[in-house]
Write a protein that binds this DNA or RNA. Structure first.
Lengths: 154, 154
DNA sequence: CGGCTTTCCTTAGCTAAGGTAATGAGTTAG
DNA sequence: CTAACTCATTACCTTAGCTAAGGAAAGCCG
């Protein structure tokens, strides 16, 4: 814990400020995730499936194993998720060019359209939720969002 | 994200920057929640049970219905959660003074001790995770944590 | 080349943590 | 005083993850 514990080279406790932040963060993440579950754009698409599509959108393509690692899910779970997405026509599975054990997952045009639609609905939801925040609070969230994303995949 | 830059019905404008923030936030929350699930401090306590204890810590006491609303969980689920916590001696159930349908849930001293212990362990875990963040990034997370908590209960 | 070991995806079976529908007791309104 | 509503609960079901075990391809080493 190099950076975080920088002020405590002697193994001192984490500052109380950070402890409060951890508590708040953990609690907020758990509750928000529960609400996001219900706020699914397509009733037939789970949050993790959405997240996979998002990852695919950023990376272009990936193997099931890579996706499992990125989503912090075990390979068998990713197999099922990818199978679901394929059945719904949101994703295409092709053989890996170099390694016949692996497969390559790519999103379809349909998936892209769906992502766009989803983005719209999410923003509507968020806008309503965020109406309870003042400009300053929202600025803090905006600043932290990319960092949280980084944190999630560390 | 064309929809985003258009003025909202009430005249407020959502900058395109927010679209990226929403995406990052949603994705990060889902992934973090998954990891938090596995990183439970006490093996015998689910994340939601932890969250309920946290709420109880802040509010002092509450009825099962109130807790269900705060945690965004259905009443039957909260019944089960509270029963678990009671079985583990972390919570006490008493009859409501005015309304004999309701019950009042309060945390025991044992719960308080456990929260303290849990806080310590969580900090260790977080510190390790946060070793990938620089001081500036961590400051952003710390600033946003309370806001996220507010957001989660709006 | 021929045989281990490892890696990747998959199948099968399990569990945990939530949800819905229906019940029963207590309260409030008409 | 009955009718309607609310709170907690019970019973049952669904979902989304897991582990364990497998089969096929690739890599290694004699």
């Amino acid at each position: 814990m190099p950076e975080l514990s920088r002020p405590e080279p002697d193994g001192r406790e984490v500052p109380p400020d950070d402890a409060a932040a951890v508590n708040a963060l953990r609690s907020a993440v758990m509750r928000l995730s529960r609400r996001l579950k219900h706020q699914r754009v397509d009733e037939s698409l789970s949050p993790t499936e959405m997240s996979v599509l998002g990852t695919l959108f950023r990376c272009g393509h990936a193997t099931p194993g890579e996706l499992a690692r990125k989503e912090h899910v075990q390979p068998p779970s990713m197999t099922r998720i990818v199978a679901m997405l394929e059945a719904k026509g949101l994703v295409r599975l092709e053989p890996h060019p170099d390694d016949r054990r692996q497969k390559v997952v790519t999103q379809t045009e349909q998936a892209e359209a769906m992502l766009e639609e989803s983005r719209r609905k999410r923003n509507a939801w968020l806008a309503e939720l965020a109406s309870g925040l003042d400009e300053d609070e929202w600025a803090k969230v905006r600043a932290a969002a990319p960092v949280l994303e980084k944190l999630a995949q560390l």
